[in-house]
Design a binder for these strands. Structure first.
Length: 766
DNA sequence: GAGCACTGC
């Protein structure tokens, strides 16, 4: 059956392929097979086994033959010995057995859903199967495979380049922020999902690609969700574009249903490949645990006492909890070694803000027995969710899962994103358990009851799109040409209130006009990889004669904090920070620190050392520098002037403070009353305190703040003193007195208006 | 007088 349908299609497909050969698709003669002989190192298409293959009508056998040949069909060079070694292991992967089945399905449909568990080889193999069927060199369109994380895009691209026996950056490449390793010969490109989205803003039809593979779609990152919706639309206009959605098994059906293009269409076809993992035995507690950290520590010690050799992975929710648990485990293990001859244990904390060299330590070997023939040592890693997806550690046999993680939640009413310790989902619990079975059969100890697992845990973690502020997303979608956001076909549509809040904010920022259309400012703002407020501030900054400085501040605000404050040296760190402090605000303090850093660099100092001495993060300062360079390029393209007020000019800092308001006029707070430390945010009247990390010692009546943080109390963090008159001048629409509820802020604005009017009248009278 | 789940452009 399958064979005859393939033969039937052959004629028409062949016609297409020849057509596309005649057309020079991308203006680069290297891609035109008729000119290929002019190109010495790329001229083997005419003898290549690929020549006999017909696009969208190839077989697994043909591909295998091409792969087996002495000459590399993609480069014309002789295959290395290593290539054949790798080829052999590739053919042992579970996915290999289904290559023909995959091709049959790929040929018969425009969109297909592919599920494969870890170890199936889907991320490396499927794009290569597609490559041997798409034959991109005949028509010049690329194959893209997206990943949620940069490291994955880089390492998988390297792996696949090795498998195909080509140089990374040539036929196989990757593209991530700050690094594009692709070239004119590139046929297969790994990239982050965010990067593809950014490309789409300039190429909304994604016309450079003939096939787009979305990997790890089950993670449901914001970018993946937008891409899915976008691709679903594009697919209806571009019948030549193929789409593969790759996911873990659990939610395959949801993807299938979603990717049925029209209501009357059947669900998108599904291909499933088994993974290669070992069984993991699950244990539950008979009763709910009151204190999960305590229970987790106890469980780890118990494993160490009675279970055979094998490393332990414990999931907790954050840095503090992890460091605390590590200390407690370490003390107890010392006792066990002394009292009951237990084996040694190395304990490693693991969380995202840990510097990379400390993260690397988790890959150290487990310790040797203390004496010859003694009880074996083991490794215990205490990690956040980072070990659930981003980092895989081989050798884990025991997983301890208390069932919690910190999750971002967004409250559209108060417009606050915050982190909350919440129960994980079933999918997460399953993923965590799976970490125990990567190298041999393992055990997972869940510190909750089986009933709680079945009845209380939700199936899937809510996708990010339902838990985020969408201002940035909405701006991107407008730039992508989506007019009707209300009917835009998201897999999980965000709450209308979240959308309304985003539209409202973008309207106040003048990125959208009153009809919801993208303005010139909005279009320009979308070019920057920044939140809309920051982008608008940056674009407006030449009007305040300080775009150089605002560019620096913007970069510093878009990287993690540059201030280091070690627990054992807080005082010294604070003293150092005070050296950079500007009395008027933290934004200016940041700028001072950055200028000092650049100064040290220009003086030829050892900057790493200089940062260390000044309790500044070299890592984050240099990444701010990277961001600055990228933003600067975008400014130049958009002809946004780079200017400074001379430092000697008395308005140097005033201009910067005023410029901050151009993007952050909605993030202003007024002191509740003189002699109070409590502030009230404008319009939404939240009572807040200034975050203790501030370098500002004076108490000002009006401040602009960078972020609202909800922890033990409500704080505003990174603040700068402003004059309220500036608000009337810079954001007159937002500060229209009539739009304010009755209260202190409204009265203050009324008084302010009168003052301004009096002053103008006096000027006019003179 | 706090804290920083994790990504990404």
């Amino acid at each position: 059956m399958a064979d005859s349908s393939r033969t039937n299609k052959r004629s028409s497909v062949e016609g297409e392929a020849q057509d596309s050969k005649r057309i020079k698709t991308n203006g680069d003669e290297k891609y035109n097979p008729y000119l290929a002989h002019l190109n010495e190192d790329n001229g083997n298409y005419s003898n290549s086994p690929l020549d006999k293959m017909h696009r969208h009508n190839t077989t697994a056998l043909e591909a295998s033959r091409a792969e087996d040949s002495d000459l590399n069909p993609w480069t014309g060079r002789r295959h290395s010995e290593n290539y054949f070694k790798i080829l052999k292991t590739r053919r042992d992967l579970p996915v290999h057995k289904q290559r023909q089945e995959f091709l049959d399905m790929y040929h018969s449909t425009q969109i297909l859903v592919f599920v494969g568990e870890t170890g199936s080889g889907k991320t490396t193999q499927i794009p290569q199967y597609v490559l041997y069927d798409e034959l991109p060199q005949t028509h010049g369109k690329l194959i893209a495979c997206t990943q949620p994380r940069r490291v994955a895009a880089m390492s998988v691209a390297q792996r696949v380049a090795n498998e195909l026996d080509v140089q990374l950056g040539e036929e196989v490449g990757y593209s991530i922020r700050f690094e594009n390793r692709t070239g004119p010969k590139t046929l297969l490109k790994y990239m982050t999902d965010g990067q593809l989205l950014r490309e789409a803003m300039h190429d909304p039809e994604m016309s450079r690609y003939s096939c787009i593979i979305l990997d790890e779609a089950h993670e449901r990152t914001l970018a993946t969700d937008i891409l899915m919706a976008l691709l679903k639309e594009i697919a209806q206009r571009r019948s030549d574009l193929k789409i593969i959605v790759m996911s873990a098994t659990l939610d395959a059906q949801k993807f299938q249903t979603y990717f049925s293009l029209r209501k009357e269409d059947p669900p998108a076809p599904l291909l499933a490949v088994p993974g290669r993992t070992f069984p993991v035995e699950i244990f539950y507690t008979p009763e709910p645990e009151r204190d999960y950290v305590e229970a987790a520590v106890r469980t780890v010690l118990q494993i160490h006492a009675v279970e055979p050799e094998g490393d332990i992975l414990l999931f907790l929710t954050g840095e503090e909890e992890i460091e605390d648990a590590c200390r407690r485990i370490s003390l107890e293990v010392d006792d066990m070694v002394r009292e009951s001859d237990a084996g040694p244990m190395s304990i490693y904390p693991l969380y995202g803000t840990l510097p990379p060299h400390q993260q690397q330590k988790i890959f150290d070997k487990a310790p040797e027995p203390l004496k010859k023939g003694g009880r074996p040592g083991r490794k215990c890693i205490v990690a956040t969710n980072i070990a659930e997806t981003s980092l895989t550690i081989d050798g884990i046999v025991y997983v301890v899962d208390p069932g919690f993680s910190k999750q971002k939640i967004y409250n559209p009413r108060s417009r606050v994103e915050s982190l909350l310790v919440s129960p994980i989902s079933k999918a997460s619990a399953q993923q965590r358990a799976g970490r125990a079975g990567r190298t041999r059969p393992g055990k997972c100890f869940r510190l909750y009851t089986e009933k709680a697992f079945k009845k209380e845990l939700i199936e899937q973690t809510y996708p990010e799109i339902l838990r985020s502020n969408l201002s940035n997303t909405i701006l991107e979608l407008k730039k992508l040409g989506i007019e009707d956001l209300v009917h835009f076909d998201f897999m999980d549509p965000p709450a209308p209130e979240t959308m309304m809040r985003a539209l409202e904010e973008l309207n106040y920022l003048a990125c959208l006009d009153d009809d919801g259309n993208l303005t010139r400012l909005g279009s320009m703002a979308s070019e920057f990889p920044l939140d809309p407020g920051l982008a608008v501030m940056l674009i407006s900054s030449p009007e305040f004669y300080c775009s150089n400085e605002i560019l620096s501040i913007t970069s510093l605000l878009s990287v993690p904090s540059i201030w280091i404050r070690p627990n054992n040296n807080r005082k010294r760190a604070d003293e150092m920070k005070a050296q950079f402090a500007h009395p008027d605000g933290d934004h200016l303090t940041l700028l001072n620190a950055y200028h000092a850093y650049k100064g040290a660099e220009q003086n030829g100092e050892d900057v790493k050392n200089w940062c260390h001495e000044h309790f500044l993060s070299f890592r984050h300062l240099s990444s701010a520098d990277n961001v600055r360079a990228q933003l600067k390029r975008i400014m130049e393209v958009n002809e946004i002037e780079l200017i400074s007020t001379p430092f000697q000019n008395k308005d140097y800092y005033t201009n910067i403070r005023r410029a901050l308001l151009a993007g952050f006029f909605m993030q202003v707070a007024m002191r509740e009353s003189s002699n109070s430390k409590v502030y009230k945010t404008v319009k939404d009247d939240q009572l807040v305190l200034i975050h203790p990390s501030t370098s500002v010692t004076n108490t000002y009546d009006w401040v602009v703040y960078n972020e609202f943080v909800l922890t033990t109390k409500q704080y505003i963090r990174t603040i700068t003193n402003i004059r309220p008159e500036w608000l009337l001048e810079i954001a007159p629409v937002y500060y229209d007195v009539d739009s304010f509820e009755k209260g202190e802020i409204k009265s203050a604005l009324v008084r302010l208006n009168e003052k301004v009017r009096r002053r103008q009248a006096m000027k006019g009278g003179r």
